[in-house]
Design a protein around this nucleic acid. Structure first.
Lengths: 189, 189
DNA sequence: TCGACATTGTACCGGTCGGTACAATGAGTC
DNA sequence: GACTCATTGTACCGACCGGTACAATGTCGA
């Protein structure tokens, strides 16, 4: 049995954190090396394509996590409301209640958007589409469902921006609570 | 009569565009020089504090524009609904219907947040506060007004992110139309 | 023990980074 | 013309950038 790579998931998670905090340009190989404990030799061994391949792998890794923990439940839940509830819980957990920022959203804002345009469009497109499907199955008209899905994903992204700008985690949890109400889910308290 | 500076407003607008497209780290002095037609000599003459002073001046410039064209109408309009309508129109025009991104929102996401934390918090804080005031004057309870204001500003930021990710300007105009409805303004058509 | 190969540290490359120094201009005033 | 002072171009700095080369390790199975 051959080891493919030593904990590639963990490695990608560490690199993701560097891109998340510093952006694509700001994430230098020195910072990545420091965060992972790997030298350039190792980094270029695992990612021969260099920084760009690292970023691509990180985006794909995040995309995979959302596919498993957000999109799939939205698509496969027999009760669409349960899938939506699952999405909100997973979102809250992933973004650590606003402590974390959306790397893919951050990439979408500056010039790195052009470099990763396909992956970025795909990620957000699938999020909106799957949420719209779930909303349509739960009784909304297709038009309503599509608008509400777009509104919801935008609200999450905007809340992350605002929470970080205000340095106030409550901004994000308030946004999630409003979304629960808006999407017709029990809100608790 | 002494010229303070040759069209400082225009200069700041050019520099702003570079920061907007490339982020703080990505905006090199070479790019700024290219965009403005000024060499380092001139740039450091106008901004002795270098890149950081340029960014601070750009943020202050944007802040001033919003103060004049968004916050003041929200605060001073005798008809609060007219002020809110003014805000949405100015927002649509400023962000060029989604073609442009919010520089201050982009700065809020990465590590440059720490460097400009005060200015960033102040900008968003005043936006939310003034909008909440206008909403309260137009009949909402203080609690409702505050939540709705936060939701609105977040929706704008999120729509900018999504519009750029999808490379689809309609995302932004749809978001503004939803906001008009949500804020109780006539929507047209 | 040996060879095959994955993994790593280190030195190095050309280029660019933000920033500084300074002499040369330019324009206006007296 | 002479003085002032804003403005500019250019050369240069040390530091760091992403990336490459490669020899030295480790770690297997045979």
């Amino acid at each position: 049995m051959r080891r493919i790579a030593p904990d590639r998931d963990g490695l990608l998670a560490m690199i993701a954190e560097v891109f998340r905090e510093h952006g694509y340009e700001g994430a230098s190989l020195a910072l990545i090396g420091e965060a992972t404990g790997l030298g350039k030799g190792s980094l270029y061994h695992f990612f021969p394509g260099g920084k760009e391949e690292m970023a691509r792998a990180v985006i794909a890794h995040i995309d995979g996590w959302f596919e498993d923990n957000v999109f799939a439940p939205l698509r496969d839940s027999s009760d669409p409301s349960a899938g939506i509830e699952h999405m909100l819980a997973a979102t809250d957990s992933y973004f650590r209640s606003g402590r974390r920022v959306c790397l893919i959203g951050a990439f979408a804002l500056d010039e790195s958007r052009d470099r990763f345009a396909g992956q970025i469009r795909d990620y957000f497109g699938r999020w909106v589409t799957h949420l719209a499907d779930a909303l349509a199955r739960s009784g909304h008209t297709p038009g309503e469902a599509s608008e509400l899905a777009e509104e919801t994903v935008a609200a999450i992204q905007g809340a992350l921006t605002l929470a970080r700008a205000a340095n106030d985690l409550d901004v994000f949890s308030r946004a999630l609570r409003r979304l629960r109400m808006r999407l017709g889910l029990p809100v608790g308290i």
